[in-house]
Design a protein around this nucleic acid. Structure first.
Length: 809
RNA sequence: GCCGGUGUGGCGGAAUUGGCAGACGCACAUGACUCAAAAUCAUGCGGAGCAAUCCGUGCCGGUUCGAGUCCGGCCACCGGCACCA
């Protein structure tokens, strides 16, 4: 009688064993492989099967690399500062420090349940002073490099989280975290000059092996465009207004100009009789939230009463204000060419402004224009000296011509804005700056870092635009590090993204108190080879991390300037809506969360690991179905039984089983390399079924084949594989065996089955030897369907190994 | 509106990239074992038809000996961006 597979006992045994005898050891000779998971924030809800999908994928990939002879960097840590952790703490009425520590220990316990091969010696926690010392250090370095600066400006404000937000944190006008509608608030803020890196952030995307989707999202977010700034004199005044345009070729068609209501010249341009109307419009615009402004598709505007002079033809063009022009992009002012821009066209129609076509469509001027002609293709018309030129050519040359004529210049613009870095919240790294009346903003000396987050009684956000830290007088009041005079500390904290922008560097040298990371360890273990996580960070964490890494490269901390060579985004695991059956995101409020704990208890961690992969292609979202795991459990049991039944039989490999063995290795390896993890699992099942067939036929199966299959399974079901390995009499860890090699020439069968078709429709099959001559194959094929060959054969097609097709009339 | 992605049985999904559509698994059905059930094993399982056969990969058309796969035109759903001049 075979011993039945007892997952509980086996998994416990091996987990203990691995603790005592780690297999992933740096012997100084092995090449390194750094496989990283996006670290979680320790929320109180714990993990569900969706979180585990990413962790299983990375663990399987890591163990596969380990079997291929790499020393693995596979760490885990905690993104514990920031809004999620703090909001949770406030909701539960406990101090974030305490709740965070509790949640960390819970989730760590849960993570250990999948037996992921994390190196806990490397563990980091962003709220640990020894960690955030370096988060602050980077800020000081940025300040010294002129990349961190203070600015008073209206910023995105979440009224629910009671803090300012970065552009990246506003999704459809709502807070990325809590979903509340974002408003504007005028605040003095610390900003990081990420825009200085815009070109490098854009261009270096080319060197990354990242999903095209993510690269595209970053490209769009950076939003580089080429164009020109053009100066328009204001009629009758000694002033000029500069506009930004990507279509300088259409300058002759500019019939009006629009300024953002927030433009500094807006009020100044209003003529006395227009002043009241203009002030009213500016006031109304300032009251609109960004959401309203997005949703009001109908154009509004007000004429200032002033005119600008088109520098090319000296025509007077009216200057309007409208909220469809954004104050913080370009120059906050645009020239409007209604004939060739949809928005300008709509505006001109509404306010009855002349429309002058300057690019011919199909060689002609359009009669009764009903929509703007926005293609930059056609010949210039109504354009003075430029008439007859091709617009596409002119588009490129106009900026240079304008520059020569002295009223403008060639420019580049970006959608990317500088990063609003201050948060008016308690649970974050204090910004290490002291404000001195004489010396201004002075950084805390590097040797005094970390600047500890003080203990407070009330850590609730104030909502006033002040951080809760502002109330702690003995902390706020200090002396200037520069001149020693009384001074005040900066009371805002850093955003959650601060720690996560560089944590991956710290893992490899997490206990270093002198350096962020030592040169030696950085060059030995970094950068990250494979980064695995959800796609939701495409323009947040992933953009910020690239920026930080480039900065740290520039100041000589690391040698590379891109943090993550490869990126893999796993799909979400969805629950099913109980009524509609539709796939929905797993969430507590929908009550469709599947906890991994019960599954581990009933089926074992090996089963759960395998099922997380089997559920569907790893990069796509998939739907969790509890029943599906039965099939996985049956598979592991069946293979277990096969292995045990044949352990002591002395069956010799045959030509057939050797061929199957090589093919097995080849199939699994190729699918694994292609990251097709769901078909790796189905492949295991197929081969398991095949082995049963052969065992039934020849009374057993050789241990060669069983052992090969066991090693291949090791990254997937490490416990069961280790136990089988031991039962087969091996002493060392299965993970020291090396990934099995295959010989492709040994995988080919000497006879193949071909489909026989008539006019492309399959009528039957024949078996022929692989090296059979074409004529013989066709003859055999015809023979097999002789009764169906009723017409004139006009063509015979033979694709070796695949089909024979007889074309008949 | 623009840019991506997806569409294949009752369900999750395969298909070596133009070559036997539905691998593998779930669910279901029948049988074996059992007093019985569970577990396990065996068989079946896209639709229509007694059958031969016909139809079938979101829809319409094309290329080809042959199309889930390529081309043209649509439709639906899911993401991302969205007055960026």
């Amino acid at each position: 009688m075979a011993v039945s597979y007892n997952h509980k006992e086996i998994e416990q045994k091996w987990r203990k064993n691995w603790e005592k005898n780690p297999v992933n050891v740096d012997d100084g000779k092995k090449p390194k492989y750094y496989c990283l998971d996006m670290f979680p924030y320790p929320s109180g809800n714990g993990l569900h099967v969706g979180h585990w999908r990413g962790y299983v994928i990375s663990d399987v990939w890591s163990r596969y690399k380990m079997l291929n002879g790499y020393y693995l960097i596979h760490p885990m840590g905690w993104d514990a500062f920031g809004l999620p952790a703090e909001n949770y703490a406030i909701k539960m009425g406990v101090h974030p420090k305490k709740s965070t520590a509790e949640n960390v220990s819970n989730i760590k316990k849960q993570i250990n349940e999948i037996s992921a091969i994390y190196d806990w010696d490397m563990e980091v926690n962003t709220t640990d002073p020894e960690f955030y010392k370096w988060t602050q250090w980077i800020f000081v370095k940025m300040f010294k490099a002129g990349l961190a600066y203070e600015k008073q400006m209206p910023i995105n404000w979440c009224p629910s989280c009671k803090t300012g937000l970065a552009n990246e944190e506003v999704v459809n006008g709502c807070c990325e975290r809590c979903g509340a509608q974002v408003t504007k608030k005028d605040l003095k803020q610390w900003m990081l000059k990420i825009t200085k890196y815009a070109d490098r952030l854009l261009e270096d995307l080319d060197k990354l092996e990242w999903p095209e989707k993510v690269k595209k999202m970053q490209t769009d977010w950076i939003g580089r465009s080429y164009g020109a700034e053009v100066e328009f004199r204001v009629d009758g005044k000694d002033e000029s207004i500069t506009v930004y345009t990507t279509r300088p070729d259409t300058l002759y068609g500019a019939t009006f100009m629009v300024l953002a209501p927030e433009h500094e010249m807006a009020k100044f341009l209003a003529t006395p009789e227009k002043l009241a109307e203009v002030e009213n419009y500016i006031y109304k615009a300032s009251m609109k939230s960004s959401v309203d402004r997005l949703q009001d598709k109908e154009k509004t505007g007000v004429f200032t009463g002033s005119y600008a002079i088109n520098p090319l033809n000296n025509e007077k063009v009216p200057i309007w204000l409208s909220d469809y022009v954004l104050a913080d992009y370009g120059t906050g002012a645009i020239m409007c060419v209604p004939a060739h821009d949809d928005r300008d066209f709509e505006f001109a129609k509404k306010f009855d402004i002349p429309i002058i076509q300057v690019i011919a469509k199909d060689g002609k001027e359009i009669e009764n224009m009903t929509e703007a002609y926005t293609d930059a293709s056609g010949t210039m018309i109504n354009s003075g000296d430029w008439n007859g030129m091709e617009s596409a050519v002119l588009k490129k040359e106009a900026p240079i011509m304008i520059e020569k004529m002295g009223f403008g210049r060639k420019t580049v613009n970006y959608k990317l804005r500088d990063w609003v870095f201050s948060r008016q919240r308690y649970w974050g790294e204090p910004i290490p700056i002291v404000h001195c009346e004489k010396c201004g903003a002075v950084p805390v000396p590097e040797e005094e870092l970390p600047l500890l987050l003080p203990e407070v009684d009330s850590y609730q956000p104030t909502g006033t635009g002040e951080s809760p830290l502002a109330d702690i007088e003995d902390w706020v009041n200090t002396t200037c590090p520069c001149c020693g005079a009384p001074a005040k500390r900066e009371t805002n904290t850093m955003p959650q993204w601060a720690g996560s922008s560089w944590y991956f560097l710290r893992y490899v040298d997490s206990k270093n108190s002198d350096e962020l990371v030592s040169k030696e360890k950085a060059s030995k273990y970094l950068p990250v080879d494979m980064y695995i996580g959800g796609v939701e960070h495409a323009v947040l964490h992933l953009l910020y991390s690239r920026f930080y890494t480039k900065f740290l490269h520039d100041i000589g901390v690391v040698e590379f300037d891109e943090p993550f060579t490869k990126l893999f985004n796993q799909g979400m695991v969805c629950g099913r809506d109980k009524e509609t059956g539709a796939a929905t995101k797993m969430s507590k409020s929908l009550g469709n969360i599947v906890s991994p704990d019960d599954i581990v208890r009933d089926y074992g961690c090996d089963s759960l690991r395998l099922y997380e992969l089997f559920i569907g292609p790893p990069e796509l979202d998939s739907i969790w179905d509890d029943r599906g795991i039965d099939g996985i459990y049956r598979f592991i049991n069946r293979f277990w039984k096969l292995a045990m039944d044949n352990k002591d039989k002395d069956i010799k490999p045959t030509e057939e089983t050797e061929r199957i063995r090589h093919k097995l290795i080849m199939d699994i390896t190729k699918r694994l390399e292609a990251f097709s993890l769901n078909t790796v699992v189905s492949g295991f099942m197929e081969y398991n079924n095949k082995m049963y067939e052969i065992a039934n036929k020849q009374g057993g199966i050789d241990r060669e084949l069983i052992e090969t299959m066991t090693i291949l399974l090791a990254p997937f079901t490490p416990h069961a594989a280790s136990e089988i390995w031991e039962q087969y009499g091996h002493e060392g860890s299965i993970f020291n065996e090396g990934w099995p090699k295959y010989d492709e020439s040994k995988t080919v069968e000497n006879s193949v089955e071909l489909a026989v078709q008539i006019n492309g429709k399959t009528k039957g099959t024949i078996k022929v030897s692989v090296d059979a001559a074409k004529d013989d194959v066709i003859a055999a094929a015809k023979d097999s369907i002789a009764d169906k060959l009723t017409g004139n054969v006009i063509k015979e097609i033979y694709v070796p190994g695949r089909i024979v097709n007889i074309v008949m009339k």
